[in-house]
């Protein structure tokens, strides 16, 4: 009788290890699927990011901006005589910075 129990116990342990192995195997496959899904998601996000960067680059094409400025907005180039340089008054930057700080505090 003792031998029978011993055999059953041994069989149980072996079966448990076997079941554990099976569980781990399938868990591993399942995690692989999850990993692949996460990887795909990351790649998609990365691809979207790249696409958006490409779109930004295309939208900032100087030719496109020039066309919009001239044709849609009716802008023209400034003549040299229309460009004037202003020398900032000494201390003007400090005054501006103080004003900004006051406004910010408010």
């Amino acid at each position: 009788m003792r031998n029978l129990y011993r055999t059953v116990a041994l069989g149980g342990i072996i079966a448990a290890f076997f079941l554990l192995y099976i569980y781990q195997h399938f868990k591993c496959i399942d995690l692989s699927f999850q990993l692949e899904a996460a990887r795909t998601e990351r790649l998609e996000a990365s691809a979207l990011n790249s696409s958006l960067r490409l779109e930004i680059a295309g939208l900032s094409n100087p030719k496109r901006i020039d066309m919009i400025a001239r044709r849609q907005l009716g802008l023209t180039e400034t003549l040299p005589s229309q460009v004037r340089e202003y020398q900032p008054v000494a201390g003007a930057e400090v005054a501006d910075a103080q004003l900004i700080r006051v406004n910010h505090d408010q």
Partner: peptide
């Protein structure tokens, strides 16, 4: 650093 050429998937 304005992109002139880039690759996307």
């Amino acid at each position: 650093m304005h992109a002139l050429a880039m690759s996307i998937k």
